[in-house]
């Protein structure tokens, strides 16, 4: 009996209606915080931080490349864990979050690859090399594409959810490989700038704006995830009476 009581919060958390109504109030604040962080970090990083001794000003691409890569990888865990939670507890909202995470993760991985390629030209002399880090990142992009594509291959939403969750979980193997690729293989890619243990290999004047940008990208990620999830909820819960009420009460919402 007690067990049931304790788990009610868990089920409320899994209710699309609860999520939709709660996030409504978060959105403006999250949007303001995201914009403020990204503008501050970019102006600081692109215009005020000192240039790198070896790479000159091209190093400034780091302020886009590293945050996009970090969040693209973290976003994969978010997608896979959402899929796992959906499979285990059969929570619909969890699958909706998984589906929403896929296009955002793909876009951020794309940014990481493109900015990396552009950065490669003045630094390595080539846009693209088949190096361990870059190749494993390209596989991450294809995994995200796979999860996006799976939704269109099934006419049944539930089957598509399950297939997407299984693919996300299997693909999770790739994430630690990406992290470790610069240590395991001889690569052109420089080793991690930020380490969990020990000081960052970067001057504080350069490092501070990078931290602002990483927090800004996480904030952006949450904002985009919530927006995608809200659209997904409306698309899939169109039969629910609360959704119908929402539409008839404010038909002119634009």
């Amino acid at each position: 009996m007690n067990f049931n009581l304790q788990w009610t919060w868990f089920h409320r958390l899994g209710s699309p209606r609860w999520f939709y109504q709660k996030t409504q109030r978060w959105l403006p604040w999250l949007a303001i915080a995201t914009l403020a962080l990204l503008v501050t970090g970019l102006v600081w990083g692109l215009a005020f931080a000192p240039p790198d001794a070896k790479q000159g000003n091209s190093f400034r691409i780091i302020y886009l490349h590293v945050p996009a890569s970090v969040v693209a990888l973290a976003g994969y865990y978010i997608m896979a864990i959402s899929g796992a939670v959906g499979l285990i507890w059969r929570i619909k909202l969890s699958f909706m979050l998984m589906r929403s995470a896929a296009p955002i993760g793909a876009a951020l991985t794309f940014i990481a690859l493109v900015t990396g390629a552009i950065w490669g030209k003045p630094t390595w002399g080539a846009y693209w090399v088949w190096d361990a880090r870059i190749t494993s990142m390209l596989i991450l992009l294809f995994l995200y594409f796979g999860v996006i594509a799976l939704r269109h291959t099934y006419s049944n939403n539930e089957a598509a959810d399950k297939a997407g969750a299984v693919l996300s979980l299997v693909g999770m193997v790739n994430v630690p490989i990406i992290y470790k690729s610069v240590d395991w293989w001889q690569t052109l890619h420089q080793p991690a700038t930020i380490k969990f243990t020990g000081a960052p290999s970067m001057h504080p004047d350069m490092f501070a704006p990078l931290v602002v940008m990483i927090i800004g990208f996480y904030s952006f990620y949450s904002l985009a995830l919530i927006l995608f999830a809200r659209a997904e909820i409306l698309r899939r819960e169109y039969r629910a009476s609360w959704v119908r009420q929402l539409v008839t009460n404010q038909p002119a919402e634009k």
């Binding site: 970019l42 692109l46 000159g56 000003n57 091209s58 400034r60 691409i61 886009l64 490349h65 996009a68 929403s100 296009p103 955002i104 876009a107 794309f110 940014i111 493109v114 900015t115 552009i118 950065w119 030209k121 003045p122 952006f220 904002l223 985009a224 927006l227 995608f228 809200r230 659209a231 997904e232 409306l234 698309r235």
Partner: peptide
Amino acid sequence: MNGHGIYVWSSFAISAVVMIGLIVKPLRQK
């Protein structure tokens, strides 16, 4: 940026376009 501007600013432009798209797309879907 001493010749590196083209690399830095094109990275910035591509990222900005993609990220604005990530906000606009779900709003349109909704």
